[in-house]
Design a binder for these strands. Structure first.
Lengths: 124, 124
DNA sequence: CTCTATGCAAAAACTTTGCAGGGAT
DNA sequence: ATCCCTGCAAAGTTTTTGCATAGAG
């Protein structure tokens, strides 16, 4: 476990368990948001899905992770980084990060998350 | 049933049944996307949920209806109108249509749907 | 010892599917 | 008669919860 991660966990008061380190590690290497299935496929040690979801919620409350729903009714998770948008293809269901920023105030509402849906360029 | 609706159904090859007319009617009056529960609450005649979902899928395939998921993992339905965005409040879960248009081509992908998430102005 | 993380199984929530009956043409 | 729309019940999918056990400090 890297020093930086150890420190992050300490700061957030998160006990570093094997499950947590693995989830964090997988997400920090990911270039895209990942679903539970995708994360599980990358796990070197199996963990129960309850453990997975519970730990992800923990990270979420600590503002380490962000989640959003794809069009296949699954959650996708990623480390909370600088704001960017996600494009979800309604044909192949892939999730793509796109560089797209907007004014975070739209008609008085605070926007924290942008999801674009449509058909990705490979599917066209 | 209005002439216009009758014609629409004919054009799309959709047999006008009571269930279909009712769903269409409720959605055409709606100012916001509605969930199954919300639509059901407006029904004058009850219909089975299977019938509801099947007919909605039919409309969807005919490009009459558009659906998207809220953050509460429910589908919301609305008539396919000019492109606009939906704001979903992560606190009160309300769905708000906002006037927000973007270039439909983002990094080569065709955007058909925009979902913004965050905290709405009443919750702030 | 104590505290809480984990696994297992069951529950939950929302949608979808299979199948048989019923209406419309 | 045929077609396909509908209701009912059961299955499906993903996520959450309850509970007992295991493990860390």
């Amino acid at each position: 476990m890297r020093e930086k991660t150890k420190k992050l966990f300490q700061d957030k008061n998160i006990k570093p368990t094997a499950a947590r380190e693995m989830i964090f590690d997988i997400l920090s290497r990911a270039k895209l948001p990942l679903s539970y299935e995708q994360i599980r496929a990358k796990m070197k040690i199996e963990m129960d899905k309850a453990t997975f979801y519970r730990n992800v919620s923990l990270f979420e409350e600590a503002n380490i992770i962000q989640k959003f729903e794809s069009d296949e009714r699954k959650w996708y998770f990623e480390l909370l980084k600088k704001t960017h948008a996600h494009f979800v293809c309604e044909s192949c269901h892939s999730v793509i990060c796109v560089d797209f920023t907007i004014n975070p105030n739209i008609e008085g509402h605070s926007v924290k998350n942008i999801i674009l849906k449509g058909i990705c360029k490979s599917c066209k």
